[in-house]
């Protein structure tokens, strides 16, 4: 026993290093197991607010560009409104509600990217809601504090989102290989599907997170995988993930009802 304690004391620097490294790696790994990782993220109070200040300064320089986008968005919505008859819209029966927010922190050069936005619990955001921009999908809410929330970006190697080919309705899974923020990959599209370059990819509506038919990207390259049964597709994302500002969080109002149905089944 005495020998051991002397040995430990002599090499205390090494053992301290070992302990700290193990703690560090443990934190890194537990980040991916989702639930244990409660407070150490960019949606926390301290880093959220600092990123917010930074974004406030940055926003000032993008006002002009944002205005152009907003007007374009407005025109599009006006157009839809005019083309819908009044009777069609019943405010008590809306399937999806939209919550508007701003990104305060965006990242796209890591393998697992997260985006922080300036809305949280207080405005009704909760985990697993989908996030889009006026062009296409961004990711899924992963963690929420009272004033901020964190999005698991589609540029995250853990991200898996159900998508489909717009023309043929064949399903696939949207993934990212961690290299180029302009492109993403789709796996598990059956080889029976007929694919062409520049085909549009949209969300499938299978996951309850996103409504059906939101734009994701266009096919740039495709080939059969090793098993010859499925396609591996390279798509160009419609969103420029490197410059995000205004985002919309989609709240599925039917979620509770569907979930209760599912749990009743089990």
């Amino acid at each position: 026993m005495h020998q051991i304690s002397i040995f430990l004391f002599k090499n205390k620097r090494f053992f301290l290093f070992l302990t700290l490294s193990i703690i560090g790696i443990a934190i890194t790994v537990s980040t991916n197991t989702y639930h244990r990782y409660q407070f150490w993220h960019s949606a926390s109070w301290l880093s959220g607010n600092i990123h917010n200040i930074q974004q406030n300064i940055g926003n000032y320089f993008q006002l002009k560009k944002e205005n152009v986008l907003l007007t374009a968005d407005n025109t599009f919505l006006k157009e839809q409104l005019l083309n819908t008859t009044r009777a069609n819209i019943n405010p008590t029966q809306i399937d999806f509600t939209i919550i508007q927010g701003q990104t305060v922190k965006n990242s796209y050069n890591l393998t697992r990217n997260y985006i922080t936005i300036n809305i949280g619990n207080k405005t009704g955001v909760s985990q697993d809601m989908g996030v889009i921009t006026n062009k296409g999908i961004v990711g899924i809410i992963d963690r929420v504090s009272s004033n901020f929330s964190r999005i698991q970006s589609i540029l995250n190697s853990n991200s898996k989102i159900s998508v489909q080919l717009k023309n043929t309705n064949h399903l696939g899974i949207l993934e990212w290989d961690g290299t180029d923020p302009r492109y993403a990959q789709i796996a598990d599209v059956p080889s029976l599907a007929s694919i062409n370059i520049n085909d549009t990819i949209v969300t499938s509506g299978n996951s309850l997170t996103f409504p059906r038919g939101l734009l994701v990207g266009v096919v740039k390259k495709f080939q059969l995988d090793d098993s010859q049964n499925y396609y591996k597709i390279q798509i160009e994302l419609i969103n420029d993930m490197t410059s995000l500002n205004a985002v919309y969080v989609i709240k599925n109002n039917d979620l509770e009802e569907i979930n209760s149905l599912n749990s009743a089944n089990e």
């Binding site: 290093f17 700290l20 490294s21 934190i27 890194t28 790994v29 993220h41 301290l46 997260y114």
Partner: peptide, 25 residues
């Protein structure tokens, strides 16, 4: 270690920078 952890908080990288900093130290 603590310095690395501070940066991890801002970068959403878990404990990667903490481990790297300890190794360097």
């Amino acid at each position: 270690f603590l310095i690395g952890l501070v940066l991890d908080l801002f970068m959403d990288t878990g404990g990667i920078h903490a481990t790297a900093c300890v190794t360097v130290a």
